[in-house]
Design a protein around this nucleic acid. Structure first.
Lengths: 220, 220
DNA sequence: ACCTGAACACCGTTCAAGT
DNA sequence: ACCTGAACACCGTTCAAGT
């Protein structure tokens, strides 16, 4: 009823002017308080005291919103891992595990991250840090880019799949059911890195039909 | 209006009696014809000439439906790869690529597969075939179970992420943008296998705090 | 020019009431 | 006993109409 910032003292805590930053901050708060399923356009509009249509001025669509919230939360990933003992590999693991932790805490954001091309500053900084550490580990740039992709893809997929199994304990879908997920995550990390360090990337876009992989017969 | 199977000759092509098999067959048909977003309870009920409530007699929920459709489509994955030349590795790649192809063709099923514990016979047969080939390759059972999980997880995650980038060409989210996705997929497959063959699995559930990974400093 | 109420076109799931 | 119409409680997104 009251037109603009009249502040007559009985509305919501001041009704902050609608901005993209403000919307994302509110979305992040709802995320932490009620979980990702509640971070919807309509729910958020209600929280901000307006109609859902108003949000579309600042946010492209729901995926855009979720991606922005994720990037906000990725500020939690500490990239200053210089002090971590154990060399580049442990430093890298610290970052990857931290990324995984954020996604496991919010599986719906892991879902969004799969679906929306990430471009937030925190994600990009993390990707850079990962590439730098792979370089420190002696990995060639070509392999490093692919290894980083796969490492992050596994983290996202793992979070989505783990998030779903949350309420259904009798999963049984995995080949290796029962064992600790975090031990498997570490093993996958090590196996991929070990393999990436020795598996050469195929030379050129259309140089030869297939990379010449060693096709030795079974040793068993 | 007409009570039961009166077949007065002007209804839908006979209105097949509702069974789980029939529902899933219809769902599969809609899937192929209109894509996964249309395979909803309501859409399907309309197709079957009934209300959505009726489906819940035969199907637990939407995820259950999608998972069943996926298992149906997994019949396409040819497990008789004995004739594939190149040894166990190429045979395994044939299966994994085939699984990937089904998921890439239907990204919404890849999504469902992440979220629902698979239990369909075709999926289980595929998992068995994969474990057998890893065994042929000389991989210990512990590693093989984890390697199979990760291989399939990568396939699902890759399909979901690729499916989303379908309509947005200016992705840019990946660290390694531009390069062929299938070359990357093959590289990831080889790297993971190479690593899995030499990365030992940590000894026991709670034997020691962390697996003792070699933490050598960078070679560069 | 800027903003948004109300509408459009859907969802999944449940349950009371019908046959 | 079996089945389901109708309702409940939501969605995302658009656009015409208001200020």
């Amino acid at each position: 009823v009251t037109p603009r910032g009249a502040s007559n003292g009985r509305e919501r805590p001041a009704k902050p002017a609608l901005t993209r930053k403000g919307i994302i901050a509110t979305a992040t708060a709802v995320m932490r308080a009620e979980g990702g399923e509640r971070v919807t356009m309509r729910r958020l509009a209600k929280e901000l005291g307006t109609g859902p249509a108003s949000l579309y001025v600042y946010v492209k669509d729901t995926d855009d919103l979720h991606a922005a919230v994720l990037d906000e939360l990725l500020a939690e990933v500490d990239l200053a891992v210089g002090a971590v003992e154990g060399g580049w590999r442990e430093r890298l693991w610290t970052i990857v595990r931290s990324y995984s932790a954020v996604l496991h805490a919010h599986p719906s954001l892991a879902r969004a991250a799969q679906v929306t091309p990430v471009s937030g500053p925190n994600y990009l900084a993390m990707a850079d840090a990962i590439l730098a550490l792979l370089g420190q580990g002696g990995m060639a740039a070509g392999q490093a880019a692919w290894a980083a992709d796969i490492l992050l893809l596994i983290a996202r997929g793992g979070a989505v799949e783990h998030g779903a199994r949350r309420d259904c304990p009798s999963a049984g879908g995995d080949v290796s059911r029962g064992t600790s997920g975090s031990a498997r995550a570490r093993w996958a990390f090590d196996a991929l890195l070990d393999g990436a360090l020795e598996t050469s990337r195929p030379p050129a876009p259309e140089h030869r039909a297939r990379p010449d992989i060693s096709v030795d017969e079974p040793a068993r």
